[in-house]
Structure formats: structure tokens, C-alpha cells
Design a binder for these strands. Structure first.
Length: 441
DNA sequence: GAGTATGATTGCTA
DNA sequence: TAGCAATCATACTC
């Protein structure tokens, strides 16, 4: 039996937290004979093997007895030697891992959004950027800005609460495992490296949970951002007055409903179009863009379904006609909306009183109307009067029976005949007067 | 909740 | 680049 010298030799390995054990081991083997030791080791091993079958109290008592056993230090020493030999196998796992690039991306994003790191006003930078994208000013916007910040702040709060919980749980669990290992180190050799490794395993597990938290937080921020920035979600109908003004212009320029840039801006101002209704990416055209949209939609929808717009056209035509008559009768020189594209237009666009329209004066179709300074150029007055006349049967001879009203300016191809710019109006396959609907709706 | 109205966007053309 | 046509997405109405 060549074990004796090894049993006697202590390497002092695996005494973590228990420096006294090494000394105990060195002292514990003196004065024993070979046969007796064999018996003792057999007993100890037997007791260890059966300890799990016992009750907690019994096991504790047995453990205490084992710890006090005279052969325990020798056995412990053997275990230390074995441990020393096998420790090489776990060395590879000890190496530092490079930081996870995905985790870094998530961290960076959370920092940029103001969710992680120091409080930066609840993501005000991001909110400001988003606000800039939608125009940057206006009461609506500030409300949305506040809303965005509140929601971001909520996300931040949840994130930090959860993170704190995870960290606390991680610390508790680590402490628990370390205590367990220290306790176990009384009966089996456990190196500090082994404890470190165990701790790092625990940390890795918890950091993967944290990564999930970071990922879902990022997703929440992205959803919030996209909702805040998505202009389509923020569509607001123009108010009634704005629609009146735009319709007024449209029907009074039916022969050429293509307002110039200046006219668009003037209309936008008159309509008090809010920032939330301006969603172009190009700041230079912020205001007139939605007017362009409105006219674009109007032209197409009017052309597609003239029948549907008949009544509306009559109403506005009548209003404008009355206005023109009134203006003419009073000999006033009303400034009219400039329509550079339309022949005969003159003067600058001025709808200064259009906000007070439609009061007191009875129009041809019974609507009330204020004979104010409605901006209408000569061409548009002619258009309107023709329209009214056509409605009252004045042009009946020249109109096909199916065409209650031949819209001024729309040619047989569906385009506005005297409009120089919309040269691409070629697609309608049915003539004006046929009823379409906006197919998407 | 379904149907409709309407402002905005996208892709294309001239 | 403006405008058309189709489409989307939301608001509004019943």
C-alpha cells in the first residue's frame, strides 16, 4: 500500500475559508496502523454514501461526526490531491469572454434613448428629434412631445426596476451559492477558482436574463418612437373653415385648380394648418405640402367622381358667383388669389376676409353667404358663372344628356385642359360625369 | 363595428 | 420636380 506517504502529505490545496483544516489534516494521521486505517476509511465512505438517506438532523449529526473523525484529514488530503489533478480541466472555462456585440448595441441604444444611464429629461433629445421631424412647433406637438416623454419615462422606470430586481436576485443567489460552497468545503476541497467560476456562471445566467430585458426595452422604445414619428397615425382632419377655404379656392379655380407656391402658402396660413398636419421631410415646403396634398387628392377625387361632388361644386360656385356679382356691383377692386397657371389671373392672392365668409347674404342655392372680399380672379368668376348657368340649364343645348355638368377645364381625357403643368393627366378611361369611387375606400 | 371620408405616402411619369 | 393614381391609415358617422 503505497498510499501512506501521499496521505500524510498535505498540499494545502482547497482550504478556502478554512485555513485550520490543513493543519488538522497534517496532525490527524499520527499513530495509526494500516489495517485500522483501512477500516476507518471504509466506515467514513460508507457514512458519506448513506448520508443522503437520512433526515436533516441525522445528517447534520453525522456530518459533525465525520468532521471530527480522526481519519477525516487524511481522506480530505487525498481528495485535495485528486482535485489538484482535475483542476486543469476547468482552466479553459476561466478565460475572459469578449463583450457580446449585441449586448453592446442594446446598451448603446438604451443610453442614446435616455433609458439607461443618467436621467436626461426622459429622452427629451429623442423627443426633440422626433418633434423636429414633424415640424417642431405647435400646441398639438408639444402635447405629443409631453406624451412621448411620459411614456419613455415609464419605460425607463420599468427598466430600472426590473434591472434592480435582477441584480438583487443575482447577488442573493451568488451569496447563497458561495455560502453553500464554503459549507461544502468543510467536507470536500473547493478551490477559490472554483468558487469564482461558479460565480461567473451565475452572473452569465443573470446577464442573459438582463439582455432579454434590454431587448424588450429597446423594442418598446422602438415601438414608441415609430408611433410618435409615424405621420399617418397622426392624421388630423382639417377644420371646417380650412376645408371651406380650400374648397372655395378649388371651385373658383375649377378650370385650373393648380395653386402656385405662394397661393398654397397663403391658403395654408389662412387655413391655420397646424404642424401636426405637416409631415413632409423637406422643411422648405412644410406649410404648402399639405395644401398640395389636399389639392392633389381633391383633383383626383373630383375627377373620379364628379357626380358626387356636384352638389358641393354647385354650392361653392354659387357662393363665388354671388361674391363676384357683389364685388362687381360695388365696383370694388378685390385682390384675388393669384393663379399663375391660369389665364387672365392678375393681382396677388388675398383672402383676408375669407374667414368671415358665408354669412347673411342668400346665395343661389339658399346657403347663407357674406358678400365679403372673396378672392376670385376674373377667370374663376367666369368659370363659376358658367358653372351656375350650366346648372340652371343655360348650357343645356351643348351638354350631353348624361352630363349634368361639364366641369370646367377637364378635357375628355380627364385632364384639366388649360392647365399647363398637369400634362400627365391621361389615365381616366371614362369621361367626366361617370361616377367613380375612391377604389381604396 | 362596418362603411365612408380624408389626409398622407409611395411609385411612377413626363 | 409636380402631379397622378393607387394605397394606406386614421377619423368620422351611423
Amino acid at each position: 500500500m503505497d498510499e501512506q506517504p501521499r496521505l500524510m502529505h498535505s498540499h494545502g490545496v482547497g482550504m478556502a475559508g478554512h485555513p485550520g483544516l490543513a493543519q488538522h489534516m497534517q496532525d490527524g494521521t499520527a499513530g495509526t496502523d494500516g489495517e485500522g486505517r483501512k477500516q476507518d476509511i471504509g466506515d467514513i465512505l460508507q457514512q458519506i454514501m448513506t448520508i443522503t438517506d437520512q433526515s436533516l438532523d441525522e445528517a447534520q449529526a453525522r456530518k459533525h461526526a465525520l468532521n471530527c473523525h480522526r481519519m477525516k484529514p487524511a481522506l480530505f488530503n487525498v481528495l485535495c490531491e485528486i482535485k489538484e489533478k482535475t483542476v486543469l480541466s476547468i482552466r479553459g472555462a476561466q478565460e475572459e469572454e469578449p463583450p457580446d456585440p449585441q449586448l453592446m448595441r442594446l446598451d448603446n441604444m438604451l443610453l442614446a434613448e435616455g433609458v439607461a444611464g443618467p436621467e436626461k429629461g426622459g429622452g427629451s433629445a429623442a423627443a426633440a428629434a422626433a418633434a423636429a421631424a414633424t415640424g417642431g412647433i405647435g400646441a398639438d406637438n408639444s402635447v405629443e412631445h409631453t406624451d412621448y416623454r411620459a411614456k419613455l419615462s415609464q419605460i425607463r422606470q420599468i427598466y430600472h426596476t426590473e434591472l434592480e430586481k435582477y441584480e438583487q436576485a443575482c447577488n442573493e443567489f451568488t451569496t447563497h451559492v458561495m455560502n453553500l460552497l464554503r459549507e461544502q468545503s468543510r467536507t470536500r476541497p473547493i478551490s477559490p477558482k472554483e468558487i469564482e467560476r461558479m460565480v461567473s456562471i451565475i452572473h452569465r445566467k443573470f446577464s442573459s436574463i438582463q439582455m432579454q430585458l434590454k431587448q424588450s426595452t429597446c423594442e418598446a422604445v422602438m415601438i414608441l418612437r415609430s408611433r410618435f414619428l409615424d405621420a399617418r397615425r397622426k392624421r388630423r382632419n382639417f377644420n371646417k373653415q380650412a376645408t371651406e377655404i380650400l374648397n372655395e379656392y378649388f371651385y373658383s379655380h375649377l378650370s385650373n385648380p393648380y395653386p402656385s407656391e405662394e397661393a398654397k402658402e397663403e391658403l395654408a396660413k389662412k387655413c391655420s394648418i397646424t404642424v401636426s398636419q405637416v409631415t413632409t421631410k423637406e422643411p422648405s415646403n412644410l406649410i404648402s405640402k399639405n395644401v398640395s396634398n389636399w389639392f392633389g387628392n381633391k383633383r383626383i377625387r373630383y375627377k373620379k367622381n364628379i357626380g358626387k361632388f356636384q352638389e358641393e361644386a354647385n354650392m361653392y360656385a354659387a357662393r363665388t358667383a354671388v361674391s363676384a356679382t357683389s364685388v362687381s356691383a360695388h365696383g370694388s377692386q378685390a385682390n384675388s388669389p393669384s393663379t399663375p397657371n391660369s389665364a387672365g389671373s392678375a393681382g396677388s392672392f388675398n383672402m383676408s376676409n375669407s374667414g368671415d365668409l358665408f354669412m347673411s347674404v342668400q346665395s343661389l342655392n339658399g346657403d347663407s353667404y357674406q358678400g365679403g372680399q372673396v378672392g376670385a380672379n376674373i377667370q374663376s368668376q367666369v368659370d363659376t358663372l358658367r358653372h351656375v348657368i350650366s346648372q340652371t340649364g343655360g348650357y343645356s343645348d351643348s351638354l350631353a344628356a348624361s352630363q349634368m355638368y361639364s366641369p370646367q377645364g377637364i378635357n375628355t381625357n380627364g385632364g384639366w385642359q388649360d392647365a399647363p403643368t398637369p400634362s400627365s393627366v391621361t389615365s381616366p378611361t371614362e369621361g367626366p360625369g361617370s361616377v367613380h369611387s375612391d377604389t381604396s375606400n
